[in-house]
């Protein structure tokens, strides 16, 4: 074979397969993972391949294109998100102490939990707002791309063995009530009170493809953008900036930063150590 036909450093086959599968997933089902951080995607695809019993990513792509059932299973690998209620209690404490006084000045509030996954963050917010007397005048948007996750969030049912962590976090977040006031247990599960989600709109929304849909006073998007590459992260941050009302608040995960984003100048640090930012408006 003529060596000049080859690229100088030949690309690993797995890279080609990964690119093609993500392209197929987008064109066939409109799920867009093309700008997800590649190192994690690679790991998840290897895992999916192994656990779903495919010999290669190309074989998995073939099955994916022709069998919709493979999509559901693959999505669970690609969007896996392990969370807990009141994760990073200091974040919620800072919201109570520093953000709530600002939120209280609004007659009505809109809060967006972007990438709500199984709903842990959503119920944390709902409980916090209830404790602070704000839930009645708040509309919460809980969005995710994974329909299974949205369904879980909508049900508000969690394994009983997770409650000890949730309770400890809630207390450390400055909770004014007992977490057990908000759920009832049955066998090895707990169900959160439906009152907490009366003011919640659950919706399929993609930070990669969809647009702004409401004007919010607070956007919480934690540990979602760590899975995005820089261009997609910039897209999402642009959406948040455009979704926020004047001087609205943005909360990120504890190891996320706006430092490397093209939108860094659109926000100011509000509670630096808890990664709570505020939209910069003159």
């Amino acid at each position: 074979m003529d060596a000049t036909l080859n690229q100088p450093a030949s690309e690993p086959v797995e890279e080609i397969e990964t690119y093609l599968l993500l392209e197929a997933l987008h064109r066939r089902y409109h799920y867009d993972f093309r700008h997800y951080a590649r190192a994690s995607i690679r790991r998840r695809l290897r895992q999916a391949c192994q656990q779903l019993g495919f010999a290669s990513i190309s074989m998995m792509q073939d099955a994916l294109l022709h069998d919709e059932a493979v999509l559901t299973r693959l999505l669970d690998f690609l969007t896996v998100q392990v969370s807990e209620m009141f994760r990073d209690p200091g974040y919620f404490k800072a919201i109570r102490e520093k953000v709530v006084p600002h939120l209280q000045t609004y007659p009505s509030l809109k809060i967006w939990i972007a990438g709500c996954s199984g709903g842990e963050e959503l119920y944390s917010f709902a409980i916090l707002l209830q404790e602070e007397g704000l839930l009645d005048r708040t509309l919460i948007y809980a969005t995710d791309i994974n329909p299974t996750a949205l369904e879980t969030a909508q049900k508000g049912i969690y394994a009983l063995d997770r409650i000890a962590t949730f309770t400890r976090n809630h207390q450390r977040s400055g909770g004014r009530t007992s977490l057990s006031d908000y759920y009832s247990s049955a066998y090895d599960r707990v169900v959160f009170d439906r009152k907490l989600r009366e003011r919640v709109v659950f919706s399929d929304h993609s930070l990669a493809n969809d647009a702004v849909f409401a004007e919010c006073q607070f956007v919480s998007c934690r540990n979602v953008m760590i899975y995005f590459d820089r261009p997609l992260q910039d897209r999402a941050l642009g959406l948040f900036r455009d979704s926020l009302s004047r001087r609205g608040f943005l909360g990120l995960g504890s190891k996320e930063t706006l430092r490397f984003s093209e939108h860094a100048d659109a926000f100011t640090e509000f509670v630096r150590e808890e990664k709570i930012y505020r939209r910069r408006d003159a």
Partner: peptide, 12 residues
């Protein structure tokens, strides 16, 4: 990451 940046993840 391939571009020699740190990527964090909360995978299992």
């Amino acid at each position: 990451e391939d571009d020699r940046t740190i990527a964090l993840s909360l995978d299992e």
